[in-house]
């Protein structure tokens, strides 16, 4: 049953620990259909782990993760592969396959996941490259010949190639200069809008968060400590959020200087 109120993604009480270290400490989070949620938080607060739990790349220790109302934590591999068809992801380092050319990277999901013929997949790949502002001749290059910003664009083209319902962006602007970061932000907003997709972005770049987000959630010590409308981020009334947004060293968040 999929009533209009059913969130696209719903996490409740999700925990994950690595050895003695509790990384996720009871995450509760809902993402509505067509919404763009940005999760902000410092390094090592469990942002990436949360995304990987939703995708099933990591198995949470407890809690429930529902996608379109369907519980995903106990899916069999075959069913999980089917569920992953709904997802696209832009990885932090782009994670392009370096043994393949750029267009083969973009067309990978179409050719392997959906068994589309090469020629047809290539056409779509070239179109998607165009959508992120890259010319067809880039398609013949190898990923290692591209700059960081171009790799991010190719990663984005790959993430949207088979028109997913949900797209994850893992630190999309990390390692880019401010102008290229803004270009990527614009592209993300554009692509998400064109697809009508649900987007979850994790970042610690506030400029990026303000640009992309409908709603913002803040994660701290493995828990969601604040969620609210993107426009409310400056009036959150939450000292943790304030400290993060303004990037102050002084405040309730104490930086872990030494490793645990």
């Amino acid at each position: 049953m999929l009533s209009p109120a059913t969130p696209k993604i719903a996490l409740s009480g999700v925990t994950k620990r690595f050895g003695p270290k509790k990384v996720l400490n009871g995450i509760d989070l809902q993402v509505g259909k067509g919404e763009s949620l940005v999760v902000i938080g410092g390094s090592g607060t469990g942002k990436s782990v949360m995304l990987k739990c939703i995708l099933g790349l990591l198995q949470p220790d407890s809690g429930s993760i529902r996608v379109d109302g369907q519980e995903t934590t106990a899916l069999r591999p075959r069913e999980r592969e089917k569920m992953l068809h709904k997802f696209g992801m832009l990885f932090q380092g782009a994670a392009l396959f370096d043994s393949l050319t750029v267009w083969e990277n973009v067309a990978f999901g179409l050719m392997q996941g959906e068994h589309m013929p090469r020629a047809q997949a290539k056409e779509i790949a070239i179109a998607k490259l165009g959508a992120v502002g890259l010319t067809p001749d880039v398609g013949e290059l190898s990923p290692s010949e591209l700059s960081g910003g171009m790799q991010k664009r190719v990663g984005l083209a790959r993430a949207i190639a088979d028109e997913p319902e949900i797209i994850f962006f893992d630190e999309p602007t990390t390692g880019l200069d401010p102008i290229m970061a803004d270009v990527i932000n614009e592209l993300i907003v554009q692509c998400v809008k064109d697809l009508g997709a649900t987007a979850v972005t994790i970042t610690h770049d506030m400029a990026s968060a303000r640009k992309i987000a409908d709603r913002i959630a803040m994660i701290y010590q493995g828990q969601i400590i604040w969620t609210g409308h993107a426009s409310d981020i400056d009036q959150s009334g939450n000292p943790y959020v304030d400290q993060f947004v303004h990037g102050r060293a002084e405040g309730p968040i104490k930086m872990q200087i030494r490793a645990l």
Binding site: L96, F97, Q112
Partner: peptide
């Protein structure tokens, strides 16, 4: 070396998100 590099650069995770089982591929 090849698979290890793919692991640490998240290429193996990327395979999974593209509906391709890395064990198979």
């Amino acid at each position: 070396a090849e698979i290890g590099t793919m692991r640490v650069t998240e290429q193996i995770d990327a395979l999974s998100t593209l509906s391709t089982n890395p064990m198979k591929y």
